[in-house]
Every structure is written in structure tokens, then in C-alpha cells.
């Protein structure tokens, strides 16, 4: 009986904790999103964050897209050639990249590179009283620190994903050529099979993932408690929560969109 009560109590605590964090997350992100529309708008700050999220992540996203397209092509050539469907390799790679692999893998890579950095930077600003310093200078820390990061995530993830999609297909193309496929065989039916909706929906997913990465990273950093160990804990939690949220929301969006 005691064991059952303990389990119910633990479940209750978990539920309360989850509701508390979801509520606080909702409040913080709402305030940050409202910041898009309220002055003063410091464009330099926005562009700096876009550079950090977008330009600085470009190399790793290109590398990921290239090898993902390449390895995916290797796998499907093997299967498709067994029933003479080589002409479907290109469209399949392009569909997979635009619908799934591009948005999801780009988001996971950016989470590791940028989401964790956002959590770590904001955490250390919190524990070193830099956020209090902003508040005392009448500079709203949410508007100054979080709003530009969330906007940068929403804007830059689709751009990175578009690049990843293209690079993935190019990587697949060269692997296919290397495996003896005719270039025309690879590209011939891509435009027949892949429609703009695939690309567009993939980019919408990417924008949502960008929101998740930046908002979760900022939330974990903004509410850090404790010293250096708190910074480490927040960073780890930001990455884990973002990864899980991306995968779960990807499933749900895919079910709705396609």
C-alpha cells in the first residue's frame, strides 16, 4: 500500500513539476515573442544572433547534409537496383532530404552547437549577476537576450535546412554516379516526384525546430540556479529536452502535413 502511495505521490510531483515548467516556459516565450513588436529594436543584436545561429553553423550543416545524402543513396541504390528501380533513387533521396532528413538532422546539429551555447551563455550571465545588471539598467533581459535568439532560430533554421537539402541531394548525386548510375537517371524524375509542398513543409518544420532550439536553450539558461554546476546542468537539459521535443514534434507535424 505504501509503495502504491509513494508511486502516486511521485507521479503527482512529476505532473505538478511538468505543469509548472510548461507554464513558466509559455510565459517566457510569450514575453519574448511580444518583444519582436515592441521598441527599442536593436537590429545589430538581431543580426549578431543570426550570424551565430546561421553563419557559424553553416560548415557543420553542409557536412551533415553531404554525408547524409551520400549514405542514404548508398543504402537505397542497393535495394532499388534489385528490382531495377534505379530511376527512383534520385527522387527518393530528394524526398527524404526535403521532408525529413534535412530539417531533422539540421535541427539536431544546431541544437548541439547553438542550443547548448545559448543555455550556457545565459546561465553564466545569470549566475554572474549580468542579468540583474541589465534589469537595474532598465534593459529588459528577456527582450535584450531572448527575443533576438528566438527570432534568429526561427529565421535561420529554414535557411540552413534549405542548404542542407540541396547539399544532401548533391552528395547523393555524386555517390550515385560513383556507383555507376547515369546522371540523368538520378535527376530525371526528381521534379516529377518531389513537389513544392514537400520542400515548403520541410521548411515550416525547420522554423518550428528553430523556435524549439532557441526557446528551450534560453529557458534553461534564464532559470538556472546554483553556480558552475547549475550552468552544466542547464546546458545538458537544454540539449536533451530539445532533442526529444524535435523528434516528438517532427512525428506530429509529419502526421499532420503529409
Amino acid at each position: 500500500m505504501n509503495l502504491i502511495l509513494a508511486m502516486v505521490a511521485a507521479l503527482g510531483r512529476f505532473g505538478l513539476n511538468a505543469v509548472f515548467h510548461l507554464g513558466r516556459y509559455g510565459m517566457l516565450t510569450s514575453k519574448a515573442v511580444l518583444g519582436f513588436f515592441t521598441p527599442p529594436i536593436r537590429l545589430r543584436n538581431y543580426f549578431k544572433q543570426m550570424e551565430t545561429v546561421g553563419v557559424d553553423s553553416l560548415f557543420v550543416v553542409i557536412l551533415t547534409g553531404l554525408f547524409t545524402g551520400g549514405v542514404f543513396t548508398l543504402q537505397i541504390i542497393y535495394g532499388f537496383s534489385r528490382f531495377s528501380a534505379e530511376s527512383m533513387v534520385g527522387p527518393t533521396v530528394a524526398t527524404a532530404m526535403t521532408r525529413e532528413l534535412g530539417p531533422v538532422l539540421t535541427a539536431l546539429m544546431v541544437t548541439g552547437r547553438v542550443g547548448s551555447a545559448m543555455a550556457a551563455e545565459l546561465s553564466s550571465m545569470k549566475v554572474s549577476e549580468q542579468m540583474d545588471a541589465l534589469t537595474v539598467m532598465a534593459a529588459d533581459p528577456v527582450k535584450y537576450l531572448i527575443t533576438p535568439r528566438i527570432l534568429a532560430g526561427i529565421v535561420m533554421l529554414p535557411l540552413l535546412t534549405a542548404i542542407s537539402d540541396a547539399i544532401g541531394v548533391i552528395g547523393g548525386f555524386f555517390v550515385a554516379i560513383g556507383r555507376g548510375l547515369d546522371p540523368g537517371q538520378f535527376t530525371g524524375r526528381i521534379t516529377d516526384i518531389v513537389v513544392m509542398g514537400d520542400v515548403f513543409n520541410g521548411l515550416i518544420k525547420a522554423a518550428f525546430f528553430g523556435f524549439i532550439i532557441s526557446s528551450v536553450g534560453c529557458y534553461m539558461g534564464f532559470y538556472t540556479q546554483g553556480g558552475a554546476s547549475g550552468v552544466g546542468r542547464s546546458t545538458t537539459q537544454a540539449v536533451v529536452i530539445s532533442y526529444v521535443s524535435i523528434l516528438v514534434s517532427d512525428f506530429m507535424m509529419t502526421a499532420i502535413m503529409f
Binding site: E129, Q130, D132, T135, V136
Partner: peptide, 20 residues
């Protein structure tokens, strides 16, 4: 409060300078 804060300064124990 923010209007008032524009007329105040606070020197934090560790400075709280923006290290970036």
C-alpha cells in the same frame, strides 16, 4: 520602476560586466 532605474546605478559585488 524602469523609469526610476534610469536614474540609478548599481555596482555589483563582482562587477557583473558583460564579458562578451
Amino acid at each position: 520602476i524602469n523609469k526610476l532605474r534610469r536614474r540609478m546605478g548599481l555596482l555589483f559585488q563582482e562587477g557583473a560586466l558583460f564579458d562578451s
